[in-house]
Simulated scan of single mutants.
Amino acid sequence: MPDGQVALALAELRSALEVGFARMDGQLALLVQRSDQTDKAVAELEERVAALERTRWPLPTVAVLTSITAVALTILSLTRT
């Protein structure tokens, strides 16, 4: 194989490698961008859940209030008879 053909084959191989690496670099950049967006969405969701947890009424408190109301109504009905 003459030297010119070897040099041409090496140049073609180098070009193919550069194109492949550029394509992989672009795909990796896209994956990093999607990962960043996912991280941001998860952080926003965690903030929303935390806000909901802070503002919800605890179930035991509702049960106690219901019980107190029932006892008060029972006592009221017994005293009126």
Rank of each mutant, 00 (worst) to 15 (best):
E18W: 04
E18P: 00
E18H: 11
E18G: 06
E18L: 11
V19D: 09
G20A: 10
G20K: 12
F21V: 15
A22Y: 15
A22K: 14
A22F: 08
R23H: 14
R23I: 04
M24L: 15
M24R: 14
M24V: 14
D25C: 07
G26K: 09
Q27E: 15
Q27T: 03
L28I: 13
L28Q: 11
L28C: 13
A29P: 01
A29C: 10
A29Y: 01
A29M: 11
L30S: 09
L30W: 03
L30H: 04
L30Y: 08
L31M: 07
V32H: 13
V32D: 07
Q33C: 11
Q33K: 07
Q33G: 09
Q33W: 12
Q33M: 02
Q33V: 11
Q33Y: 06
R34E: 12
R34T: 06
R34A: 11
R34V: 01
R34S: 12
R34D: 04
R34N: 07
S35D: 14
S35K: 12
S35T: 11
S35Q: 09
D36W: 02
D36C: 00
T38S: 07
D39M: 10
D39F: 15
D39L: 15
D39V: 11
K40D: 03
K40Q: 12
K40M: 07
K40Y: 15
A41Q: 15
A41Y: 13
A41K: 05
V42T: 10
V42H: 05
A43M: 13
A43W: 14
A43D: 10
A43T: 03
E44C: 08
E44R: 14
E44T: 09
E44G: 00
L45H: 15
E46G: 00
E46D: 08
E47T: 03
E47L: 01
E47Q: 04
E47M: 02
R48W: 10
R48E: 14
R48Y: 15
V49W: 11
V49M: 08
V49F: 15
V49T: 09
A50T: 05
A50C: 00
A51C: 06
A51F: 14
A51G: 00
L52I: 06
L52C: 03
R54W: 13
T55L: 05
T55N: 02
R56M: 12
R56T: 11
W57R: 01
W57I: 03
W57L: 04
W57E: 07
P58Y: 10
L59R: 03
L59H: 00
L59T: 05
L59N: 00
L59I: 08
L59K: 06
L59S: 02
P60N: 04
P60D: 05
P60G: 02
P60M: 07
P60I: 08
T61D: 07
T61Y: 15
T61L: 12
T61N: 07
T61K: 07
T61Q: 13
V62L: 11
V62T: 03
V62S: 01
A63Y: 12
V64A: 10
V64N: 05
L65A: 14
L65M: 13
L65P: 00
T66I: 01
T66S: 10
I68P: 00
I68C: 10
I68S: 10
T69V: 09
T69H: 12
A70C: 01
A70N: 01
A70D: 02
A70V: 08
A70H: 02
V71S: 03
V71R: 01
V71E: 09
A72Y: 14
A72Q: 09
A72F: 03
A72R: 05
L73Q: 04
L73R: 06
L73A: 05
L73T: 07
L73N: 02
